Structures are given as C-alpha cells and as structure tokens.
Amino acid sequence: MKKLIFFTIFSFLRAQGEVQALSPRVGTEIDVHENRFYRIFPGEKGFVSAQILTAGPNEFRVKIIKETHGQRVQKTSTFTLRKFIELQTHVNGQPELTKEALNELYKGMHFLQAAKIVTEIPKPQFVKIKHSGSKKLKGTLLSFENEILQVQTPTSVEWVPLDRMEEISYRMTTGDYLFLKPYIFAISAALGFGIGQVYNSQRKPETDIKWYNRFYGTIIGLIFSGELFDAVSTLLTPKETFILAEEEYERLRTQ
C-alpha cells in the first residue's frame, strides 16, 4: 500500500510541469501561424509562441511569449481541465493547417505590413481613416514619417500614430481615364466662356470688353480643367480598404 501511494505521488510530481500537446494539429508548441489560423489565443497582441504545461490535478498552466515594443516578454496564466478540453475540441474541429490555407489566411492580414502600405500611398491623397477606438477621420494624407500620419482636414492638421490605426481607405491609382481629358477640358472651357457671357449680360459692357470677359472666362476654365480631370478620375477609380489593426481584423473575421 505504501509503495502504491509513493508511486502515485512520484507520478504526480513528475507530471507537474510536463509540456502537453493541445492537439496533434499544433504539437507541444503553438507558433504564431497556428495561433492565427486556429485562433487559440486570439486576444494576445504580439503573440510569438505558447506552451501548455500541467500544473496540478485538473489544472494547466500556459506560458505565452509575446513581443512588446521590440522586446520579448512571458505571460503565464492557469486554466482548468474543462478549458483545456474546450480548446482541444476547438482546434480538432477545424481543417488542418496547410501551406495553401496559410497563404489564404495571410492575404487579408494587412496589419502585418501596415508601415509598408501607408508608405506606398501616393501623396497627397484623400483618405478615410478609422483609429483610436473607431474614431473616424477624413482628409488629405500629406506625409508619413516616424510612423505618424499627417492628415489635412478642412479645419486643421491631424497627426495619427500608426499603432493607433485600425483601418484606412484610399484609391490606389487614379485610373486610366485619359480619354476623358479632351472632353473635360472642353466642358471646363465652355463653362468659363458661359460665366463670362453671364457677366456680360449683367454688366452690359462695350463689345471689346465683352470678348475680353469671354476670353478671360475661357482661360480660367482651362486653368481649372486639370483639377477637374483629377477629381473626376479619382471619383471613378475604385476605393481600396486595408485593415491595419489585428484587433479590428479579428473582430471582422468573427462577424
């Protein structure tokens, strides 16, 4: 009897701290790709890896390695056997992680390339931004330096840190609408001529002044025709939206 008790205690002590495989799909160490695919610990920002160890009867301890501000830190927490089984069932109930599935997963993870995406936006460019807890901002993106976006709004200049960005929408190109340019120039010139004619009808100047006003209106119309063409091209070009925060990506993914 004493030998049996000793063997039981010895087995329990040896089992404590032993690494447990949550599922054959992830093994004894859960890496960042497996965590993103199976969503085992979806709320852990900066997740690098995790291991689950036995901590006692019906109790487990998870060690999560995270990267925060360029440094790796370890977070430890405990959970019950019931929670372990829930996570195990959650993983086993999903498809196996393959290279094709991983490539498909990363297609929508723009937050992994947030700095690159914002850097490559043609500037100045009209953008729509969601940041700092779903706050919305519309304006012209003037610059992006030291991971801070400078945005000109109708009333002020706003600075938005990249790490507070959740979503950005903009037009990646102005589209191939050069065939519209002659028509827009003609319409703009006609509008300028028409404005000059309206001015003449109100003032009733001499004949030479009338033609001067018409000519002046046409020139003004042609001057603004370039801006009009840019505006039309921008409006006709499809808009792209990029999710730049992992939390926002997870929220949309679970909807």
Rank of each mutant, 00 (worst) to 15 (best):
F37I: 10
F37Q: 10
F37R: 11
Y38H: 08
Y38W: 09
Y38E: 05
R39D: 11
I40V: 05
P42W: 04
P42I: 12
P42L: 08
G43E: 10
G43A: 09
E44W: 06
E44T: 13
E44G: 05
K45G: 02
K45F: 01
G46W: 00
F47R: 00
V48G: 00
S49L: 06
S49I: 11
Q51R: 14
Q51K: 13
I52C: 03
P57I: 02
N58A: 15
N58P: 00
E59K: 14
F60V: 05
F60D: 09
R61F: 02
R61M: 14
V62E: 04
V62Y: 02
K63Y: 08
K63N: 11
K63M: 06
I65W: 07
I65P: 01
I65C: 14
I65N: 12
E67K: 11
T68P: 00
T68S: 09
H69Y: 14
H69D: 13
H69P: 00
G70C: 02
V73H: 03
V73A: 05
Q74H: 05
K75W: 06
T76D: 11
T76A: 09
S77N: 12
S77K: 11
T78G: 08
T78Q: 15
L81W: 09
L81M: 14
R82V: 09
R82E: 14
K83E: 14
K83P: 02
K83G: 01
I85N: 12
I85Y: 13
L87T: 03
Q88W: 07
T89Q: 15
H90C: 01
H90I: 00
V91C: 03
V91I: 15
G93D: 08
P95G: 10
P95N: 08
P95V: 07
E96F: 07
L97H: 08
L97M: 03
L97F: 06
T98H: 09
K99L: 14
E100T: 09
A101Y: 05
L102E: 11
